[in-house]
C-alpha cells in the first residue's frame, strides 16, 4: 500500500474517532440573592454546573439523568450558547465554541439544534408551520421560495407529517404533532447534534413511544448525535447509548446504558432505579433504598459528597471529602468513596 492510502486511512480513522462534542470541566455559577443599586451585599452563587466533563461521538446518544435542579438544562443552555459558562470548555467538532461571536456563532448554530420539553411553548402561535420550519433556511441560506418549500416538505415528511400541515397554525395540532413540527424545525439545516431537553416528558405515553421511535429512526438515517436529557430512567435508558447521572451540578456515574441499567453502582443511581415504578405493580421492589430526604438546595450544597445526607451507605469521610472520580475496569466513571479506585 502506498503512503497516500495509509494517510487516507489514518485520516478516516481520526474522523471516525473524532467526537462531535467534547465538554471539559464545565462550570456555570449563577448569582443569587439581592443586588440592588450596585450594592451587592453577601452575594451568593448557585453552582448549577460544577466541573462536568463528557463527550458525544457522531451518531451517538448520551443520556443525561438527574432530579430537577441538578443542572441538566443548564448544560443544554451552555451547549446551545443561550448562557455563557463561568469556566471550562465546550468543543464542537474540535472547535472551541464558548467564545464564538457574530458570524462564527451563527455558523455554529447551523449544526446544533434543540427540541424542548413543552410543545405548546416551543412553536410561535402567530406563525404558520411552514414559516416555523423554514426559519432556519431563511436565516442561513438564500434558497428560492420553491427550494425552501421543497426542503420544508422533505423535513416534514422525515418527521412523519404531510406537506399540507405547512399552512396551518400550531394551535391546530396535538402535543405529539407539535413535537414532530419541532423536530422538523430542528432538522431543516445540516444538523449534526440535537439537544433533546426532556423532549418527550410532556407527552402521553403512547405518543412518547412514537416520538422516541421517530428519533431513533432519524438518528440511524442521518447520523446525528443526541444529547438526551430526562428524568425518566426507562426512556433515557432505552434511547441512549451511554447514560450520565448528575446530582447537584456534578457527574456521579457514567457508563454504557445497558451496563448502567443492569448494574448501577453509585448509591444515587441505585436509588434512582429503585424509585422508578416497574411496569408491573406486583414487582415493586425494595423501597428501603429510596433517598431519605428532599434534594438539598444548590445554593448551599452539603459538604463533601453532595449526596451523603441522603445516602444509605454514607461513611464518615463522605461528609468532609468530595470523592475523586475514578475509572473502573470496563470504562465506567464513578464518583463515590465506595469505589476508591486503584
Amino acid at each position: 500500500m502506498s503512503d497516500a492510502s495509509h494517510e487516507q486511512i489514518a485520516q478516516a480513522e481520526t474522523l471516525k474517532n473524532a467526537k462531535t462534542l467534547v465538554v471539559n470541566d464545565l462550570v456555570k455559577h449563577f448569582p443569587a440573592g439581592r443586588s440592588g443599586f450596585g450594592v451587592k451585599a453577601n452575594k451568593q452563587w448557585v453552582k448549577a454546573v460544577d466541573g462536568v466533563s463528557f463527550d458525544i461521538a457522531p451518531g451517538e446518544t448520551l443520556g443525561l439523568v438527574g432530579e430537577s435542579g441538578c443542572g441538566k438544562s443548564t448544560i443544554a443552555k451552555l451547549i446551545l450558547r443561550l448562557e455563557d459558562p463561568t469556566s471550562g470548555s465546550i468543543k464542537f467538532e474540535g472547535r472551541e465554541i464558548t467564545d464564538l461571536k457574530g458570524d462564527q456563532l451563527k455558523d455554529y448554530r447551523r449544526s446544533v439544534q434543540a427540541v424542548f420539553q413543552d410543545p405548546y411553548s416551543s412553536l410561535s402561535p402567530r406563525m404558520r408551520v411552514h414559516d416555523i420550519v423554514a426559519e432556519g433556511l431563511r436565516i442561513h441560506t438564500d434558497y428560492s421560495k420553491s427550494d425552501v418549500r421543497t426542503r420544508v416538505n422533505d423535513v416534514l415528511a422525515l418527521a412523519g407529517l404531510s406537506p399540507d400541515v405547512g399552512r396551518l397554525y400550531p394551535h391546530e395540532f396535538s402535543g405529539g404533532q407539535r413535537q414532530r413540527i419541532a423536530i422538523a424545525k430542528a432538522l431543516v439545516l445540516d444538523t449534526k447534534m440535537l439537544i433533546l431537553d426532556e423532549a418527550v416528558s410532556a407527552l402521553d405515553v403512547s405518543i412518547r413511544a412514537q416520538i422516541i421511535t421517530l428519533l431513533k429512526d432519524l438518528q440511524q438515517d442521518l447520523g446525528i448525535a443526541y444529547l438526551y436529557i430526562g428524568h425518566d430512567l426507562a426512556t433515557v435508558g432505552h434511547l441512549s447509548d451511554r447514560v450520565m447521572v448528575m446530582y447537584l451540578g456534578r457527574v456521579l456515574e457514567l457508563d454504557d446504558s445497558i451496563e448502567l441499567v443492569r448494574n448501577p453502582k453509585h448509591p444515587y443511581t441505585e436509588a434512582l432505579f429503585a424509585a422508578a415504578l416497574p411496569s408491573n405493580p406486583d414487582h415493586i421492589g425494595d423501597t428501603s433504598e429510596q433517598p431519605n430526604a428532599e434534594v438539598p438546595t444548590a445554593l448551599a450544597p452539603p459538604t463533601g459528597c453532595h449526596f451523603h445526607p441522603r445516602c444509605q451507605q454514607s461513611m464518615e469521610h463522605c461528609s468532609t471529602h468530595f470523592p475523586q472520580e475514578v475509572k473502573l475496569t470496563g470504562g465506567r466513571r464513578i464518583s463515590c468513596h465506595l469505589y476508591p479506585g486503584d
Binding site: L80, M127, E135, I139
Partner: peptide, 24 residues
Amino acid sequence: DFVKLAEVAGAGRIRIITRHIIPN
C-alpha cells in the same frame, strides 16, 4: 421556548423582535 429556539436557530435580534415578539 420559541424565542429561545429562534436564537438557537441563529436568528438575530431584529428578526426575533419583528418575527417573534411583535406578532405576539
